[in-house]
């Protein structure tokens, strides 16, 4: 297991802002999920991972973050597509299995749908999903570019198990992935076996050393939203769209139909 986060996220974010001399004009708070929606103050800008907000329409003081977009691995995968290192992309294979507490099934679908659109550089145009309650979902979506993407999501890992995911982009020239060829599980950068403990660490950010990779991504995404106020409305719109796409997946399962997105999102 990865070592646990040892820093307070708000302190980490404040430190990061101080370091780059960013001074947000408003009061803010990074919500790591422990803050109930009713506790959010309208006078304080609340930054929270979008998947934690079940409602599609969020009030202005709430900024739904898409933290995975701040992860180095996803930025590099996106670069590989945008720079046409792998091109043209044809099929994506995504998987995300959680313990259900770290992220519920709807959250995993939300995350993977966003990654499909963001990495592929095109909106989802159709959804077919096969879902088992809050436990497992399998979906096939198509992007406007013609890319077909599978999303495997489940919440079947034992409590406390780090999220297991995989993203593979298949192109006519080349395949890109965040997993090593011929492996099933993520690799770490540091492994420790000692008399007193067995541990592994995956440190990707020296400025935020001590935070696990999900927390690093959340703090980085929040930092970006505080430094670039103009992106907040865009994030709210993207969140709205993603919430509706997730709802469409559940509707597809209920109706047992492939659903076109056009005309179904408000």
């Amino acid at each position: 297991m990865d070592a646990n986060t040892t820093l307070d996220l708000n302190e980490a974010l404040a430190g990061l802002l101080r370091k780059c001399a960013a001074e947000p004009s408003e009061l803010w708070r990074l919500d790591d999920g422990r803050l109930a929606a009713r506790e959010r103050s309208p006078e304080v800008l609340t930054l929270v991972a979008g998947w934690r907000c079940p409602e599609a329409d969020l009030p202005e003081p709430v900024v739904p973050l898409l933290p995975w977009r701040s992860e180095r691995r996803f930025q590099e995968l996106r670069n590989l597509v945008q720079n046409q290192t792998v091109t043209p992309v044809l099929m994506f294979r995504f998987a995300c299995i959680t313990d259900g507490e770290t992220m519920p099934l709807e959250g995993a679908i939300y995350r993977e749908f966003d990654l499909a659109e963001w990495l592929g550089g095109a909106p989802i145009t159709s959804v077919y999903a096969s879902i088992d309650g809050s436990l497992a979902a399998n979906a096939i979506v198509r992007l406007a570019s013609g890319v077909v993407c599978s999303v495997e999501a489940a919440t079947t890992l034992p409590a406390g198990t780090p999220t297991h995911d995989r993203h593979e982009l298949i192109a006519r020239r080349g395949v890109a992935s965040d997993r090593v060829v011929d492996t099933q599980v993520p690799q770490s950068s540091v492994y420790l076996w000692s008399d007193s403990e067995t541990a592994r660490f995956t440190d990707t950010d020296a400025e935020l050393l001590g935070l696990d990779s999900d927390s690093v991504a959340l703090v980085r995404a929040a930092s970006e939203a505080l430094r670039r106020p103009q992106c907040r409305q865009e994030l709210r719109e993207e969140h709205r769209r993603l919430r509706q796409l997730v709802a469409l997946a559940y509707e597809s399962d209920r109706q047992r139909e492939r659903l076109d997105v056009a005309g179904r999102l408000s």
Partner: peptide
Amino acid sequence: APNMRTDLEVEDLLLVTGKMADGCTFL
């Protein structure tokens, strides 16, 4: 999906999902 090998006249990339009779979903 669109073919990786454009000179083939048969499919080379596809994905399949659905449910078993016992409710197990698959991909």
